[in-house]
Nucleic acid binder design. Structure first.
Lengths: 227, 227
DNA sequence: GTCTATAATATGATAGAC
DNA sequence: GTCTATCATATTATAGAC
C-alpha cells in the first residue's frame, strides 16, 4: 500500500540476524510473493493458466523469471496459491443472510454485495469462472464441501422464509444460482456487456441501474402489477 | 452419423477424375474436417486453446497430427473455424420473439429455448463463455455488430410491451442479460451445479424443475403474492 | 492425402557463481 | 536472494518420400 522506500541495496550484512532484520526479511518476502501473485492473477484471469508463461508473469511483477521460481517452486504451485487466495475472497460474501432478517431486504442486500464483488474483484470472478467452466480440475477438491455447506445453510434459511409465507414458493437452489449467475455475469461477460451497452459496472450510474434491475427482476418479476 | 463402411483402402486410381469421384472426395474431405472440428470443440471447450495441443485433437479425431495440419493450416486457423461455426449455433435462438406475441408467453418460451440450448450444446456454451471471459480476442470483431443488432431489436420489442402496459417497467438490456446469465449458468457452471445439487440438465426432471424455477423467478419474482 | 523425419521455437525448470 | 547460463521438453509446423 505505502510507497516502497528505495529498494534494498546492501549485500547481506554478514550474519546480522537480529530479530528485527529477520522480520523485515520475512515481510519483504511476503510482500514480493504478493506482488507476484497479483501479476499472476492478472494474467491467468485474462489468458488462462496455459496461455500465460512464467516469463510474462515475471515481467509484469518486475522480477526475473529465475527469481520468480525462487519464490514459487513451479508455475503449477503458483497457480494453486492464486486459486486458494481467490477462494478466501470468494466464499466470504456467500455467508450472507439468516432467517431472522426480512427476506426481501436480505435478498436485495445479497444481490448488492455480490454485484459489488463483481465490480471490485472482476479478475477473481473471471478466474473462478474459467476454472469452473473447465471442470475445475483444481478447485473442487477444496471447494466441494465448504461450498455445499454454505449453500445448504442458505437453502435452509430460504426454506424457512417460504414456510413462513414470507417468500413465494421457489426452489431455493435455483434462486441462489440465479443470483450468482446474474451478478457474476457483469464481471465474467464484461466485454459482451460493453459491446452491447457501452457500459460497465465501473460507471456508478450503470452499477446503480444494474443493481436496481436485478433486484426488481428477482424480487418482483417482469409481470405487470395488476392495479 | 452412419457407420463408416471399411476405411478407404485403394491408392489413388491413376487420374480417374469423373465428377462422381470428385464430389465423393469433396464430401469426404468436408466430413473429415467436421470430425476434426468436433474433436477440437471437445478439447478447446474443456482445456482452452492453449491447454490443447494439435496432437491431442488429432488423437481424438483419429487422424495423424500431420494429416490434421493438412486439413487445417494451423491450430489458430482451426480455432477460428471452430469459433465461427459456434456463432451459427449461438445466434439463431436469439432471434426469438416479436412484439405481436404475448410477452409472458414469449419470455417463458425464450427461457426454455435458451435452457435447452444449454442442455444440448453445453460445449459450445462453455467455449463461448471462455472466449468472452478472456476478452474475446477473436470473437468480437465478428460478433460485435450482429449481436448488437439482434439485441437492439429485442430491446425494442420489450420496450413496446412495457409501453403497452403488458410488462413491468424493467430495463430491457438487463432483462436480456438476466435470461442469458441464468440459462447459460447451467452449462457453463455445470460442475458447480453438480457439486451442489448432484444434478444436471441431462436429467429431464431436473431440466423441468430448473426451467420452471427460472421462469417463475423472472416472470413473478420471489415476493409472496398478497391474496 | 498420408506418412516419417525433422526443423524451429517456446517455455518450464535447474545449476552454480556471486 | 538474485543473476547468468543452460538443460530438457513439448509443441507447432514443414520438407519430402510414397
Amino acid at each position: 500500500m505505502s510507497s516502497t522506500p528505495a529498494k534494498k541495496s546492501l549485500k547481506k550484512s554478514t550474519r546480522e540476524s537480529s530479530s528485527k532484520t529477520q522480520s523485515k526479511r520475512i515481510e519483504a518476502k511476503r510482500n514480493k510473493r504478493k506482488i507476484i501473485m497479483q501479476a499472476a492473477l492478472d494474467l491467468f484471469s485474462s489468458n488462462g493458466v496455459h496461455g500465460t508463461s512464467v516469463e510474462q508473469i515475471a515481467d509484469l511483477a518486475k522480477v526475473s523469471k529465475t527469481n520468480l521460481l525462487y519464490y514459487f517452486a513451479s508455475k503449477e504451485l503458483l497457480y494453486v496459491e492464486v486459486i486458494q487466495q481467490l477462494l478466501d475472497v470468494w466464499l466470504v460474501p456467500l455467508k450472507g443472510f439468516n432467517s431472522e432478517q426480512d427476506p426481501i431486504e436480505a435478498i436485495a442486500n445479497y444481490i448488492e454485495v455480490k454485484l459489488a464483488l463483481s465490480r471490485d474483484n472482476p479478475k477473481e470472478s473471471r478466474l473462478f469462472c474459467m476454472e469452473v467452466v473447465q471442470g475445475a480440475p483444481l478447485l473442487f477438491n477444496q471447494l466441494g464441501s465448504p461450498l455445499r455447506a454454505i449453500v445448504e445453510a442458505k437453502v435452509q434459511v430460504i426454506s424457512d422464509w417460504i414456510k413462513a409465507g414470507k417468500l413465494a414458493p421457489i426452489d431455493p437452489y435455483h434462486l441462489i444460482f440465479s443470483i450468482w449467475a446474474t451478478t457474476q455475469h457483469y464481471a465474467d461477460f464484461r466485454v459482451q456487456v460493453e459491446a452491447v451497452t457501452g457500459q460497465s459496472l465501473d460507471n456508478p450510474e450503470f452499477f446503480a441501474a444494474t443493481l436496481h434491475s436485478i433486484q426488481t427482476i428477482i424480487l418482483n418479476g417482469v409481470r405487470p402489477q395488476h392495479s
